[in-house]
Design a protein around this nucleic acid. Structure first.
Length: 754
DNA sequence: CATAGATAGCAATTA
DNA sequence: GCTATCTATG
């Protein structure tokens, strides 16, 4: 058994105070790399071991599944799995789903409600806007969707908003919001933001429900508190309870951890206010500062401190380390993004060859997903193993979403958005017109789309051919639905793939993409199998404490769908220890919470990072700076800062000046490998690209015999001879036996030098 | 009337 | 460079 001593071993003074603090609310201001997860897990273990807290009384909330899983694992290492399983260690969204599955019927939601992700909710908003005859130019559904999301993050419901709508835009938005919410409810669905807002409403509207959870959770711990938005703030308040004279249950002990300097999610409603004013919100709160950094060398910390110090509204904080200065930060100015990527890959090659680090210890960060493409090209070309986190995610791929839509309809037949998605996928002859007629019919009869589909005979204006297709489709759904009760998720997935003809359509296609689609679907079946094997049923409320034999119920389709909708696979960050691992490429946002011995921070240009849209806005610019701070503090030993003089953004090259964040790093810390670009002079005079349009303008390569090149359609080749000069340079290139030798005008040929 | 192929508009960050 | 929408065809 863990004694008090071992739980506090190896912790510094403030960390110990944070672990042992008892009584009032506690705010832990944890600088980057200051051992925050360690403090949280040890605190939980300490609660159990020294303060007689039962595991079921603990609720620990994180933002990502990855963080939740890590925390759970580290708690397990101290307390053992049985104890850890009885706690709620999960994300805001998962916790809400669990509450809502149990209590949502009080608000008219089925316990098998569907969770719409942002793509689904945008689709629904599009349908709603069309139904309201809104001109998509003046009232873009996408923007409406975003605005509704913002409103929900502020806990503004459609009624309240309709009441205060002033402008024409706002009134239209209010209409759309109202109808959108009605359609969601009818479909038995909630979007991401509803998960939080509806839970808050539920806790407010039903005191007995709130009391139930307050009795249960005596310790509430929140990670990354700086990323909470207003709705999440209220949720925490509601769960903790007010206490006071007429409260039945005294307030739970609240412990939040955060770092205002790492707040990078204002765009999804996060407000720094929550952490800055914690002491005002909870008057008897205690604050503990963790400033000793255990991650990075001092040079890296000095750079990070210098950058973040430029932000006006912040409490001063100074990270320090006992690890020594470490190597200098390396700077590099590239001519263009290809050059930048080549430099990065070259350095990684060097470092791994010299045995300084394994590929798995290296990360490349960029501001926007679009920047990953060039890196990917170069990594593939050089054969360096890599993995891109984020971007087009697995669950956002079309084929996966199609199958998911089938599964959702099977779980919840009223789910209109999913139903309409699969109506004609694979193609079965139910076209736009037929769909429109069903919709019209549903509206007139005041029945759901699903019900209207089953009564298609009665709907006017549908061709007999379509009618037949619809009947077959309904029969197909019924057949599949019949399988659901006694099949496992994986079996259902396979049945859907087979019986809908989805697989055979892909198999018969000659589109190259479809091959990888099939592979993805195969992987999806694998995901389902995996799920069945690892599934542990959430313990029922009343047996949460007891039971050595954990009753793991059969995993249902609903369980499977829930896991998928809540797991973004940004959680797929590669493990460094697996055979040296692979280089990780990701956006700065996904990088939060991670650490790497070697970090490349790329695209440091004004207009890229900080992003162009933030340049005129002081608060937005401060958030960009925090993002830079997050990026820099991910590095443990070596940090590379790169920028490019020219960068092509959708076709046109842009000349960007150095990022202001680069200038904010003290000069003596940076060892410039290349400090100026040779084409920097060109940047002063704005010039149009010399090749007007005609496809994407490309850099004209300088070729000499023997060079390896790649051609867009002919592939790899070797330059045999070069003739002429300037724009009229010609090259003869050998593409091997199959294609032979060809002559090109270098200026126009789609050739790239390798 | 459904479908396939062409085209315009568009991409900041995410649970 | 990619996806939703428009247009020509079967």
């Amino acid at each position: 058994m863990s004694s008090q001593q071992s739980l506090l071993d190896g912790l510094n003074e403030p960390q110990r105070s944070a672990v042992t603090h008892s009584g009032g609310p506690l705010l832990i201001v944890a600088g980057a790399g200051s051992g925050k997860t360690r403090v949280l897990t040890h605190r939980i273990a300490y609660l159990l071991a020294e303060r007689g807290v039962r595991p079921g009384e603990v609720l620990a909330i994180t933002f990502t599944n990855k963080a939740a899983a890590e925390m759970k694992e580290r708690i397990e290492n101290i307390t053992g799995a049985r104890v850890a399983n009885a706690m709620w260690v999960m994300t805001f969204h998962s916790a809400c789903v669990r509450i809502l599955r149990r209590e949502g019927n009080r608000l008219g939601y089925p316990s098998s409600f569907t969770i719409y992700d942002s793509a689904d909710s945008q689709r629904l908003m599009q349908l709603v806007c069309r139904e309201l005859d809104l001109d998509p130019k003046r009232y873009p559904p996408k923007s409406f969707s975003a605005q509704v999301s913002n409103l929900k993050n502020e806990l503004v419901d459609y009624d309240t908003f309709a009441g205060q709508a002033q402008s024409d835009q706002e009134r239209k938005l209010a209409e759309a919001y109202t109808l959108y919410q009605r359609r969601l409810h009818e479909a038995g669905a909630m979007d991401f933001d509803d998960l939080i807002m509806v839970t808050v409403n539920l806790l407010h509207a039903f005191p007995e429900v709130a009391e139930h959870y307050r009795r249960r959770f005596r310790h509430v711990l929140v990670d990354e508190y700086q990323d909470t938005n207003h709705a999440q703030y209220e949720l925490v308040r509601a769960l903790v309870g007010e206490g006071g004279p007429d409260a039945v249950v005294p307030p739970a002990e609240l412990c939040v951890v955060g770092d205002a300097d790492q707040s990078i999610y204002a765009f999804r409603g996060a407000t720094i206010r929550n952490i800055l004013e914690f002491e005002r919100d909870y008057p008897d709160a205690r604050t503990i500062l963790l400033e000793q950094n255990y991650r990075s060398s001092q040079n890296i910390l000095t750079a990070a401190n210098a950058v973040i110090a430029r932000n006006a509204e912040r409490r001063p904080k100074n990270l320090w380390s006992e690890q020594g200065d470490g190597p200098a930060i390396v700077g590099y100015v590239a001519d263009n993004e290809h050059d930048e990527a080549a430099f990065v890959v070259g350095e990684i090659d060097q470092l791994t060859d010299d045995g300084v680090c394994a590929p798995g210890e290296v990360a490349v960060f960029y501001r926007t997903n679009a920047q990953s493409r060039v890196f990917e090209d170069v990594f593939i070309r050089t054969g360096l193993p890599y993995k891109i986190v984020g971007g087009v995610r697995f669950y956002e791929r079309r084929e996966i979403r199609d199958i998911l839509a089938y599964l959702r309809v099977l779980a919840n037949p009223e789910d209109t958005v999913s139903l309409r998605r699969i109506l004609n996928v694979p193609k079965r002859g139910i076209g736009d017109r037929a769909e429109a007629m069903i919709e019209l019919f549903a509206a007139r009869e005041r029945i759901s789309f699903a019900q209207a589909l089953r009564r298609a005979e009665d709907a006017p204006g549908i061709a007999t051919r379509s009618l037949k297709a619809i009947r077959e489709f309904v029969a197909l759904l019924d057949e599949l639905a019949g399988l659901v009760p006694d099949s496992t998720p994986a079996e259902i997935v396979e049945a859907v793939l087979q019986r809908t003809g989805y697989l055979s359509e892909l198999a018969n296609s000659k589109d190259l993409q479809d091959e990888s689609r099939m592979e993805n679907l195969e992987e999806f079946v694998q995901v389902a199998r995996e799920f069945e094997n690892t599934f542990t049923a959430p313990l029922a409320e009343d047996q949460e404490e007891a039971g050595p034999e954990e009753e793991a119920g059969e995993p249902t389709l609903v369980d499977f769908l829930e896991q998928i909708s809540l797991v973004a696979d940004a959680d797929q960050i590669p493990d460094a220890d697996e055979h040296g691992g692979v280089v990780t490429l990701m956006t700065l946002h996904s990088a939060k919470g991670l650490e790497f011995p070697v970090v490349f921070l790329t695209g440091l240009e004004d207009g890229v990072f900080p992003h162009a849209r933030t340049l005129g806005d002081r608060t937005a610019l401060e958030e960009e700076r925090r993002l830079a701070y997050v990026g820099i503090t991910r590095a443990q030993e070596r940090l590379f800062l790169t920028r490019s003089a020219v960068r092509s953004a959708w076709g046109t090259p842009a000349y960007n000046p150095a990022s202001r964040f680069l200038d904010e790093v003290p000069k003596e810390l940076i060892d410039w490998r290349r400090a100026e670009s040779t084409i920097a002079a060109v940047s002063s005079r704005p010039r149009m690209p010399s090749v007007p349009s005609r496809g994407r303008p490309r850099d004209v390569p300088t070729l000499s015999p023997g060079d390896k090149v790649t051609h867009d359609s002919f592939g790899m080749g070797t330059v045999l001879l070069v003739d002429g000069a300037g724009d009229r340079t010609k090259a003869r290139i050998d593409f091997g036996a199959d294609i032979g030798e060809k002559d090109f005008l270098v200026k126009f040929a789609p050739i790239e030098k390798l």
